[in-house]
Design a protein around this nucleic acid. Structure first.
Length: 414
RNA sequence: GUGGGUGUAGCUCAGAGGUCAGAGCACCAGGUUGUGGCCCUGGGAGCCGGGUGUUCAAAUCACCUCACCCACCCCA
């Protein structure tokens, strides 16, 4: 085996897997455009500072999962670990807000996080993202979730669960943090798992979604963010839920749904599957109403989501490859030029097929035609060259016909 | 970053210190068949993941390392 092997967590996407990726991309483009979204293609590399400022310098993503390195002039750059930061940067930098009050964008492509690979988790992974800027309307939140759900449905995915929560805004979050800390003060640090006892002070929200049973029991009685929503956030959340209900979207409100990226506020949501192992979250998103301003842009609210393509892929059936209409089997070396002409003529008529580039035995030619799934095998040997009529074999029935080359497109196209 | 599992032919795997490293499937050639699928004969193929050590002798034992898989963690 060669010494040149792919590096850890990076994979070659090919065959049925590549066809799934194409399906996910094309479906996204079709569905999202119905909702008014335009494609945005972002750089893979951005200044490290952009991610630290938007995702949060205290998060795991920024602290230990980014591919960060100095460029040739010593400036720190990072392979994007997610898409929102870059989309916000592009929104501000290109003044996409000018002349319109709503900007809807989607983007597809690779993301990079330095994590230990496992099922549904690679170091280079791929996301479908949608971001909408400029409206704080709860109807936009509902539409975003609806669009995501429609997208997943059109991919044929059922058996998914949608969870939704509100994290509150900068007005009500401090009040909740205070209440949560008061609650935690009455618990014993040693009763939590080691991770939770450490982050109890620094990042108490994280204790809410710890999977350890002892932590879940301790947090069972913890105050809920939903009880602390301010006079603005509470009706906003309820309007979102009302509209989802009206649109027939089934969801669960989960007040413990916490997102690991600091910029999320108000409505947050996650789509999960029970069939793909531990990495069960296939999509997630929410509002980030303060982020544009924080990154130096206008005070525009925004909302978005990301879909993990590798995880969706685990749920998709293998799409069949394109059908092969014909195979031109050359049985005599003199037939090679004519075979190529016939082959090319058929392709120009829109048919799909291949030819043998060298002569081979009839037996192996037929086997090859069978293997590539050709519907018809066209023989070109000594007899055919002399008579000017080709032998066409129907690979399904085994029947054979004599045909002039000119009549082939019509014959095969039926 | 932490744990557990696995690395032998293109694929699935057997071989557990001692003849030139094996099977099935796949592939190639030939035979048979009504010009493919069934059957028969033959063939090509392998840094036994890599390295170091122990031994007269290592795919096999020890240590190191790399990769893959699963889980923790984190997230999509």
């Amino acid at each position: 085996m060669s010494n040149f092997r792919k590096i850890r967590g990076f994979s070659d996407i090919m065959g049925a897997e590549a066809r799934k990726f194409r399906l996910m991309e094309e479906t996204a483009s079709i569905v999202f455009s119905r909702y008014g979204y335009d494609e945005l293609r972002l750089p893979l590399l951005e200044r490290t500072e952009l991610f630290a400022r938007s995702i949060g310098s205290d998060t795991d993503v920024v602290q230990k999962e980014m591919f960060t390195f100095p460029d040739r002039k010593g400036r720190y750059v990072t392979l994007r670990p997610e898409a929102t930061a870059g989309a916000v940067r592009a929104y501000i930098e290109n003044k996409l807000y000018a002349g319109q009050n709503l900007t809807k964008l989607f983007t597809v492509g690779p993301m990079f996080r330095y994590e230990r690979p496992q099922k549904g988790r690679q170091r280079q992974f791929h996301q479908v993202n949608a971001e909408a800027f400029g409206s704080a309307s709860p109807l936009l939140d509902a539409e975003m979730v609806l669009m995501l759900w429609t997208y997943l449905s059109e991919l044929g995915l059922t058996d998914l669960t949608l969870q939704i929560n509100s994290l509150g805004c900068r007005a009500c979050q401090p009040e909740y943090a205070k209440r949560l800390q008061e609650y935690l003060r009455d618990t014993d640090a040693d009763d939590f798992c080691s991770d939770c006892s450490e982050r109890r002070e620094r990042n108490p929200l994280r204790l809410l979604d710890c999977k350890q049973t002892q932590c879940q029991e301790l947090m069972h009685e913890a105050p809920s963010m939903l009880d602390c929503l301010c006079e603005s956030c509470r009706p906003h959340f309820h309007t979102v839920l009302d509209n989802l209900q009206r649109m027939g979207i089934a969801f669960e409100v989960n007040s413990r749904l916490v997102r690991g990226l600091d910029y999320y506020q108000r409505t947050t949501f996650e789509v999960m599957s029970g069939e793909i192992g531990a990495q069960s979250s296939v999509a997630g998103g929410g509002r980030y109403d303060d982020l544009v301003r924080q990154l130096g842009g206008p005070d525009h609210p925004a909302i978005g989501f990301a879909c993990g393509m590798e995880r969706l892929s685990l749920l998709l059936d293998d799409p069949a490859p394109a059908e092969t209409d014909f195979y031109v089997a050359i049985l005599d070396g003199d037939g090679l030029p004519e075979g190529m002409r016939i082959c090319e003529d058929l392709r120009r008529k829109g048919l799909r097929g291949e030819m043998s580039y060298e002569t081979a035995s009839l037996k192996s030619q037929i086997r090859h035609a069978d293997r590539i799934g050709a519907h018809y095998c066209i023989f070109l040997g000594r007899d055919e060259l002399e008579s000017g009529r080709l032998t066409v074999r129907d690979m399904g029935s085994g029947e054979q016909y004599q045909r002039e080359a000119e009549t082939l497109p019509e014959f095969l196209g039926r």
